[in-house]
Design a protein around this nucleic acid. Sequence first.
DNA 1: GTGAAAGCGCTAACAC
DNA 2: GTGTTAGCGCTTTCAC
Lengths: 344, 344
Amino acid sequence: MAKATIDDVAHLAGVSIKTVSRVVNHEPNVRESTREKVEQAIARLNYRPNISARNLASHRSRLILLVYDDPAAYETPSSGYVIRMQQGTLKACKAAGYELLIHPCNYRDSDVEKDLRSLIERTRPDGVVIAAPLSNMPSIVSAIARTNTPYIRLSPGKSNAGEYSVATNDREVSAEMTRYLASLGHTRIGFIAGHPKHKAVANRLLGYKDGLKQSGLDFHEELVFAGDNSIASGSAGADELLGLADPPTAIFAANDDMAAGIIRVANRLGIDVPQQLSVAGFDDSSLARQIYPALTTVRQPLAEMAEAAALALFSENDEQMLQSGAQTVPGKLQVRESTGPAPG
Amino acid sequence: MAKATIDDVAHLAGVSIKTVSRVVNHEPNVRESTREKVEQAIARLNYRPNISARNLASHRSRLILLVYDDPAAYETPSSGYVIRMQQGTLKACKAAGYELLIHPCNYRDSDVEKDLRSLIERTRPDGVVIAAPLSNMPSIVSAIARTNTPYIRLSPGKSNAGEYSVATNDREVSAEMTRYLASLGHTRIGFIAGHPKHKAVANRLLGYKDGLKQSGLDFHEELVFAGDNSIASGSAGADELLGLADPPTAIFAANDDMAAGIIRVANRLGIDVPQQLSVAGFDDSSLARQIYPALTTVRQPLAEMAEAAALALFSENDEQMLQSGAQTVPGKLQVRESTGPAPG
DNA sequence: GTGAAAGCGCTAACAC
DNA sequence: GTGTTAGCGCTTTCAC
């Protein structure tokens, strides 16, 4: 049998199509008995509204677009990051009757902006969720803004007035991690900073400094290594920091991948973690629980952040919460096996 | 300015909308000069066809649905698996002008089938790509089949006649890995089998047996441990196998997660990998390069498989390749640090 | 080669 | 509360 249409339902229920439309869209002004008749007809015919027809008539696509930096494009292992964002966005979309379109893209490509613009013009999503680090890149954000599609930035690093964004408290929770390490007796705490384009990660360095100060510890330039979020840069940082005359007894990396790089080096050098060296990361990527020893890290509530972002997009469509501005979902310390009391 | 429609373009170019439609859809029977006029008008107006209108009129959605088991639902770390499938499917979709809808679902939920059916009825995708292990589950596959939407199964374990599927040569390449371990001098090679519901993984056990035979080695029941694809089961298997009176000097796990579990145990027990124990996995998940030592494994060409699947779906729409049946994309050995010559 | 007309299955605006 | 009408922006069919 061919798919039932709204007319079929209207006939069977003995009402007009407008009434069927009201029932389907949960609009008011329908008598309870009428509603029931219509619902029975819908069930009997297994009627499902045709999305294309609905979208055409209502000038909406009921599509949300999630754009993120493609982890597969250059062998970054942070696929858990993407999965968790997708999961959060999907949850909100599902609840609101939207579908999710995903779009991994490589910000190093010269034509990302054009690509993004073309995608949005073709698919006409009702909203766009922009993940970090794309959300930190002015040319990308403004390319999306120019399409006049509502958008929201995840972990934008620094939020602009009049723009909606969702972030975690990178700085505060990084300070907390640093204080935690200090509380274990560590006085020389190293830090491996993240990619400079990823602003939220830069906030973690500020938090590290805050934490040192709050613990009464001095900041030492030589204990900070400039990484780029990759495992390899974590290893390089560990090599440098551990080669110091007075090496740190704890190293805090601005993400889990770099922390994994530190642990690889420690394994290779025969340095026991956490006996001789404490290591902490940030993100609570799936990696954190997989490596040995399991990583002490910060759980970044990515799924929750993405969900909040999508929800904000929907309410923006409803013309409320228009100026809600920046929203924060706090991260939490996850203490595992890779940190312990300072040696000696 | 409001979005340009096909009428605007037709006016500007001085032709009928049907001609514009022909140009946009690359149909024949348009004079070259006319085509150029139309294309100029399209460019000037920055015209983009309205997808909803097009889909409504043509009875297609230009949507492909990718369904997979949700890695976030129960803390499985195999997000790289999902990302790579998404990537391959997206590539094929993009090339063909389709969009991709993703749908993670938990096969343990009692209402997956209903959920899936409802999703397909609502979104009306032109095709569905079903990932493993969902592709091995009769109730799920038949729920999708009943919607009369063309579908294709990835790594179905065993392919059905008249059904399209894409798999890798699990059995052959597992035999190859086993022969490789034997060639290093290992005579007692353990195997940690995967989840019984995941049939493709079961084929790896068969390959292991093949490889032993081809290397002139006897099969020993006690060297096989029944895992379930999780890291924990890999650890459990390692504990059991290494506790044997005559323990194996090499262990081949049916996936990378379980291999990681073996390495965790080895680390804990102070057993040097690969000096004292060789470990091999399967999948080449991102995990494989992250752990120390880096894992020798089999690169499963997931992105390529998913791409082939989506492409097959498109050609199926074009009513060709209808009975092409099962397709195979071969896996490749990735020798890294976790395997070496047998000790002694 | 090109065009006119008739929908596709809904929602929006307004009438009753 | 409920129904009528007029599109939304395309593709399809068929005529020329």
